[in-house]
C-alpha cells in the first residue's frame, strides 16, 4: 500500500433545490488517521460522503486527493484512485455469493478484460486462483469465513456490514469512507467493528467515519469534525470538540428549549 494521500475540501457547496445541504465546507483529512464526522440529522454528513465519492457533484468548491482533482470524476474513477466507501444501507451484490462480492472488490487489482480473456486464459486462471485466495483470507479476517459460498443477500444484518467492509478493504483503498457503519449493530458487533477499523488504520488507511453513535466515534477517532446545517462548526481532537460550546449547543440546544417550554 502506498503512502496515504491527504484529502482536502475547499469551500464545497451543494444545494438541492433551494436547500443548502453542504455550505462552503473546507476541511483537510490528514493521512493515516481516523476522522469522525458527526452532527444532527440533516447536517450534511452523508451528502459530504456522496460528494467525495463522486455520487454527487458539488455546485462549487473543489475536492483534492493528493494532487488529483476529484471534483469532476465519476465514482468508478474515484474508486480506482483508492477511495473506497460503504453505504448507509448495506448494499450486497444480490445474486453473487459472499466471496464473489469480495472478489469484485479485488477487481481493480485483478483485472481481466475481454481481450485478456481471449488471449491469455492460463494467466487468467492463475489470477482467479490468487483472487480467490485473497478474498478467502479477507473473509476470515472479517469473521465471514464460514459464509463464503452463501448468497450474499441471505446474510444477517450484522454480517452484511462486515461483508461491506471486507469488500471495501479488498480494493486496498488509501482512504475509506464509512457511512454509519455501526448503525443497527449490537454492542459486541460494534466492538468488533471498532477493532477492525483500528486495524485498518494501523495499515495506513485514512478513514472518514460518519456515525450517530457519539461514544463510538469519540472512542475511535483521532480527530472529530462536527457539522450542523451544512457547515462545519467544530473540528479537532475529540476532547477539545467534546467541550466546545457550539457543539453542545447543536446537540443539546433543542433539548434545552424543549425543557424550558
Amino acid at each position: 500500500m502506498s503512502a496515504a494521500a491527504e484529502l482536502e475540501l475547499n469551500g464545497v457547496t451543494k444545494r438541492y433545490g433551494g436547500v443548502i445541504a453542504v455550505s462552503g465546507v473546507s476541511i483537510a483529512l490528514s493521512a493515516d488517521a481516523v476522522t469522525g464526522l458527526i452532527g444532527p440529522n440533516g447536517a450534511g454528513k452523508s451528502t459530504l460522503i456522496n460528494l467525495i465519492s463522486g455520487f454527487r457533484r458539488p455546485d462549487s468548491g473543489g475536492i483534492m486527493f493528493g494532487d488529483r482533482d476529484l471534483t469532476r470524476l465519476d465514482p468508478s474513477a474515484i474508486a480506482r484512485l483508492g477511495i473506497s466507501r460503504t453505504f448507509q444501507q448495506a448494499a450486497p451484490l444480490v445474486g453473487l455469493s459472499v466471496i464473489e462480492n469480495v472478489m469484485v472488490g479485488l477487481h481493480t487489482r485483478y483485472h481481466a478484460g475481454l481481450g485478456s480473456i481471449l488471449l491469455r486464459l492460463p494467466s487468467m486462471r492463475q489470477e482467479a486462483r490468487a483472487s480467490e485466495q485473497i478474498a478467502g483470507g479477507l473473509l476470515e479476517e472479517f469473521g465471514l469465513g464460514d459464509e463464503a459460498d452463501t448468497e450474499a443477500s441471505g446474510l444477517p444484518f450484522g454480517k452484511l456490514r462486515f461483508l461491506e467492509l471486507a469488500r471495501a478493504t479488498a480494493m486496498q483503498p488509501q482512504m475509506l469512507l464509512l457511512d454509519e457503519p455501526a448503525a443497527g449493530l449490537n454492542r459486541v458487533e460494534t466492538d468488533q467493528l471498532a477493532a477492525l477499523i483500528r486495524k485498518l488504520r494501523e495499515r495506513g488507511v485514512t478513514i472518514l467515519l460518519v456515525d450517530h453513535d457519539v461514544p463510538f466515534v469519540f472512542g475511535l477517532c483521532d480527530r472529530v469534525v462536527v457539522m450542523n446545517f451544512g457547515s462545519v462548526i467544530a473540528a479537532g481532537k475529540p476532547d477539545d470538540v467534546y467541550g466546545d460550546p457550539a457543539v453542545r449547543e447543536a446537540y443539546l440546544g433543542g433539548e434545552e428549549q424543549g425543557a424550558a417550554a
Binding site: 465519492s53 463522486g54 455520487f55 465519476d74 465514482p75 468508478s76 474513477a77 474508486a79 480506482r80 473506497s84 466507501r85 453505504f87 448494499a91 451484490l93 444480490v94 445474486g95 453473487l96 469484485v104 472488490g105 477487481h107 481493480t108 469488500r167 471495501a168 480494493m171
Partner: peptide, 13 residues
C-alpha cells in the same frame, strides 16, 4: 446487474 452504484464504488465503470 445487481447494483450500478455499488459496482461503481468498486471501481467498475
Amino acid at each position: 446487474a445487481a447494483s450500478r452504484d455499488v459496482a461503481q464504488l468498486l471501481g467498475i465503470s
